[in-house]
Design a protein around this nucleic acid. Structure first.
Lengths: 229, 229
DNA sequence: ACAAAAGTGTTCCTAATACACCCATGA
DNA sequence: TCATGGGTGTATTAGGAACACTTTTGT
C-alpha cells in the first residue's frame, strides 16, 4: 500500500459541459477532434489533469483555453469511470458543467493544432459524439433541469440585464413546457433575487423593464425554490 | 496528447462513507490505519482503484472486503481532488456513500494486516480523522439530509420489517428535529411505497404493525417527495 | 391501575394553479 | 390602425402544518 505508486494508474481527465442559451435554444459547446481516437468527431472540451492542479483548476484552465471565458458558474457533475470508456486505455473523467451567457463567450482556437472547430450544438439534436460524451451531456442536462426547478441557477445563463420574458423563455426552453406568464412573474419577483434597473429595453413593440441580479444577497439565489413545472 | 500515458499521473482511490442507524443514532463506519501516513488515525474504508475495475466496482469491492456486506444502497458522492489532500503525493478520491441496515452489517478484519480495528462512530462526535475524511463525511451527511427530504431513500437504513415509529425516529435522528406523528404517518402511507406485513411487533407496550417495502414499485421509492421539516 | 408506546381526523393556512384583458410601441 | 409582445389580479384548490385524545399491552 505504501508503494502504491508502482501500480498501473488510470489517467484522469476533466470534461466540461458548457451550457448557454442562444436563439431561444439550449446549446452545448463541442470541439472537433483533430486526432484519433474519434478523429473528426465532436467532443466535449476537456483534457488531462496536471499533477500540480486541482480538478476544478483543470476544468477552469481547459475552459479558458478552449472558450476564452472566465467567471462562469462551474459545478462538478459526476465522475465517469467505466474501464472501456476510452479506447486508448483506462481514463477516468471528472465531468463538470458550466453555465454562461452567450454574450460573454467567444469560443476560439487554441495553439494546439489538433483543435480545429468549435460548435454550439442544440441539446435537442446532438451530432455523433466521441467517447461517452453523449451520456455525460444527458446527465448534465438532467442535473440542469433538476436544479432549475429548485434554484435560480438559470439566471447564470442570461446576460447581466434581462427582461422577465427572457427568463421565462429560458425556463420554458430548458424544462420543455409552457409556463403561465402571471404566475411565473409573481414567483420570480417574490424570490427577491432580482431588481429593476429602471431601464427599458426597446424593441419592436412595447418596451420591457430590464432587471438585474441583486448584488446584496447573491447566496439566496441558490436557496431552494420550487418552480412551477 | 496521444502519448498522454507518459505524463505523471495522479493516483485514483475510492472512499466510502457507510451510514447506518444504531441506538437511534446515525453512525459512520471507520477503520483504524495501521500504516503511515496518519498511522493510528481513523479513516474511511477505501483504497486504490484497480486498472481493470470501474469506480463502482472498486467501491463495492472495498466495501465488501472491509465490512462483509453486499446489496447496500450505493451512490457516488463527489470527487475530491485537491493537490495536497494526501501527503504521499497526488491522490484523487472518488467518494461514495452507502446506506445499510445495522442488522445486515458485520464489519470484519481483512487479511491485510495493517487494518486493525473498525468503529461505528456517531456522526455527532467524530474522532480525529486521516486525510480530508472529515470533509468527506460532512459532505455525505449534507447529501443524506437533502435526499431524505425529497426521497424515501432513508428506508435503506432500516431492517426489512419496521414500524412506522422506527421510520419516524430515523428521520428525526438524521434531520435533527421532531416531526409530528400524525402528519408523518399520513405522508408516509400516502406515498404508497410501504405496505403492512400483517404481523405485529410485540414489545413492552402496545404492539405495532410491521411494514415492509413494496416490491412491486421499487422505483417510486426514489421519486421526489417533500417531507415536513 | 398505571406506564408507555400505538394509533387516529379535523381545522387552518399558505402556496400553487388556472384564467383574460388592457397597454405601449413600431411599422 | 394593427400586429406584437408587455404587463397586471383574483378566485379556486391542494397540500403542509398544527393540534389531543383513545387504545392496547406488559408489569
Amino acid at each position: 500500500m505504501n508503494d502504491f505508486k508502482k501500480y498501473p494508474k488510470p489517467s484522469v481527465a476533466v470534461d466540461i459541459v458548457v451550457f448557454t442559451i442562444k436563439d431561444d435554444d439550449l446549446k452545448v459547446l463541442l470541439i472537433k477532434r483533430g486526432l484519433p481516437p474519434f478523429k473528426g468527431r465532436w467532443a466535449l472540451p476537456g483534457g488531462f489533469v496536471w499533477i500540480s492542479e486541482s480538478l476544478e483548476e483543470a476544468a477552469l484552465r481547459e475552459l479558458e483555453e478552449e472558450t476564452g471565458v472566465r467567471d462562469v458558474y462551474l459545478e462538478q457533475l459526476y465522475t465517469f469511470g467505466d474501464t472501456k470508456r476510452d479506447p486508448r486505455g483506462r481514463v477516468i473523467s471528472v465531468a463538470y458543467y458550466a453555465l454562461t451567457d452567450s454574450t460573454k463567450i467567444k469560443p476560439f482556437l487554441t495553439g494546439q493544432e489538433q483543435i480545429q472547430k468549435v460548435l454550439w450544438a442544440s441539446v435537442k439534436k446532438l451530432p455523433p459524439l466521441a467517447f461517452d460524451h453523449k451520456d455525460i451531456i444527458l446527465y448534465a442536462l438532467k442535473r440542469l433541469e433538476y436544479k432549475l426547478e429548485y434554484t435560480a441557477v438559470g439566471l447564470e445563463l442570461l446576460p447581466d440585464r434581462f427582461t422577465l420574458t427572457e427568463i421565462q423563455k429560458l425556463y420554458e426552453t430548458i424544462l420543455g413546457e409552457k409556463l403561465d406568464k402571471r404566475n411565473f412573474r409573481k414567483k420570480m419577483l417574490s424570490l427577491n433575487i432580482i431588481e429593476e434597473t429602471g431601464i427599458w429595453k426597446k424593441g419592436l413593440h412595447r418596451p420591457a423593464m430590464l432587471y438585474r441580479f441583486k448584488k446584496t444577497n447573491p447566496l439566496s439565489a441558490f436557496k431552494k425554490i420550487k418552480f412551477e413545472g
